[in-house]
Simulated assay, not measured.
Amino acid sequence: MIGTRRVNDDTQTQDTDVGDDRSGDPERPSTVRTARGCPACGTFNPSARELCRACGADVVTGDALPWPEPDPDPDVQVLQVVAAPDPHRWWLPVAAILAAAGLVLLGLVVAEVGPFASATVVPEAAFDADRYDGDTQQLLLSGIATVSTLPPRDGRSFQAALMVDDDPGTAWRSDGLLEPGEANGPLEIVDLFLTEPGWISEIVLRNGDQSDLGTYAEVARLRQVRAIADGGEVVLLNLLDDGRGRQIVELPDPVLSTMLRLEVVEVFPGVDDNGVAVSDLEVRGWTAIGDDPSLAAERAEIQPASAPLPFEVRQSL
């Protein structure tokens, strides 16, 4: 008769009764066969087995044994197939680059950026002689600016405002002359700001420092001046070295502007001083009326007569 009892969770023992021989001989040991359950799958295995006959796991720990990596066969070569480039499709990346560049260019054109920005056209200003049929008048100034001014010397002042005080005994004098190439080339710059927009037709001036004959010869005088008005109007003026007196320089046509820039291009050299002088200067023409003031402001906004001076000395009048 065979009986079974559980010893623990993993091991069961089977006892084999040998019948009469066992009961008749109590000194004879009984024959016992032991089976162990697999911790991994629960299958019973003979005690002599180390690996489960069902799952192959270790019957003691339940760990599965790793499969060995197969040794590569040296006689077998793995070939990697690489597709050769199509010589007829070389243009595809080039076309992609050109398409991207075209899109960028189109965006700049649409946005009007950089060189594709639309240029603003300065409105034309035509002088109407029928509306301005009277004699020219002195156009009042709100300010004057120069690149340099000579500091006071021998009890005299040489501020830029003395150039427009209608007194031949006073004068503005520069503190030397600019080197060629500075400030866009001119030797000196004078900016005259009008109180109201006007049509400028002529300039009246006393050239040099006319306080006395000796001083007149000592300091350089204007010889050639570039007159610049709003809207890009430029006129080259040639002046005289005719001693102590007034000279009137007429523009070919009246120009509408809010200011006038005078760039000194050439001078009559002085004997000792390396600066340039002007005793008196007057801007003449007609004060703008009707729609001309707004037209002058628009022209000045688009293309003013001047940019900021490099070393500006400005005075309000």
Results as ranks from 00 to 15, higher is better:
Gly37Pro: 03
Thr61Lys: 02
Gly19Thr: 11
Pro308Leu: 08
Leu187Arg: 15
Val234Phe: 04
Phe311Val: 12
Leu150Met: 13
Val109Arg: 01
Val190Ser: 10
Asp209His: 07
Asp20Leu: 14
Gly114Pro: 03
Leu295Cys: 07
Gly285His: 01
Pro46Thr: 04
Pro197Val: 07
Pro197Trp: 05
Gly275Lys: 14
Gly107Val: 05
Arg223Leu: 00
Asp154Gly: 14
Ser157Pro: 09
Arg53Ile: 13
Ala57Tyr: 03
His88Arg: 09
Gln303Val: 11
Gly231Arg: 10
Val219Lys: 11
Gly134Glu: 12
Glu202Gly: 03
Gln80Trp: 12
Pro93Trp: 02
Asp166Val: 11
Gln138Ser: 10
His88Glu: 09
Leu281Tyr: 04
Thr16Ile: 15
Thr258Gly: 00
Ile2Lys: 13
Thr43Met: 02
Thr195Gly: 06
Leu178Val: 08
Asp25Met: 10
Val278Tyr: 05
Ala48Leu: 06
Asp20Pro: 11
Asp230Ile: 05
Ala288Pro: 01
Met259Gln: 11
Asp209Ala: 08
Ala277Gln: 09
Thr287Asp: 01
Glu250Tyr: 06
Arg173Gln: 15
Arg261Val: 03
Val109Gly: 00
Arg36Glu: 05
Leu205Gly: 00
Asp292Pro: 02
Val18Pro: 11
Ala111His: 03
Ala95Phe: 03
Phe158Gly: 09
Gly114Ile: 07
Met163Gly: 04
Ala277Ser: 14
Ile248Gly: 06
Ser118Tyr: 07
Thr34Phe: 13
Glu50Thr: 15
Gly214Cys: 06
Pro123Thr: 02
Leu192Asn: 08
Gly185Pro: 06
Ser142Gly: 15
Trp91Pro: 00
Val104Gln: 01
Arg131Pro: 00
Cys41Trp: 00
Asn274Pro: 14
Val76Gly: 00
Val59Arg: 03
Ser279Lys: 01
Phe268Cys: 06
Leu139Ala: 02
Val32Cys: 08
Ala220Thr: 06
Leu92Arg: 12
Ala171Val: 09
Trp90Lys: 12
Leu92Ser: 02
Thr11Gln: 10
Ser148Ile: 13
Phe311His: 13
Thr136Asn: 08
Val147Gln: 11
Val235Ser: 04
Asp86Glu: 04
Leu260Gly: 00
Ser148Tyr: 13
Thr170Lys: 06
Asp272Glu: 13
Leu150Tyr: 14
Trp67Asn: 02
Asp253Cys: 03
Val121Asn: 08
Pro39Tyr: 04
Trp90Val: 13
Asp209Arg: 08
Ser279Leu: 00
Arg226Asp: 11
Ala64Tyr: 05
Thr43Pro: 01
Glu233Gly: 12
Glu112Met: 02
Leu105Glu: 02
Arg22Tyr: 15
Asp241Pro: 01
Asn184Lys: 14
Ala305Asp: 04
Phe158Trp: 15
Ala57His: 04
Pro74Ala: 09
Arg284Trp: 01
Ser118Leu: 13
Ala100Asn: 01
Val271Glu: 15
Ala117Glu: 15
Val278Trp: 03
Glu179Phe: 07
Phe311Gly: 12
Leu106Glu: 03
Leu79Tyr: 09
Thr43Val: 01
Ala296Val: 07
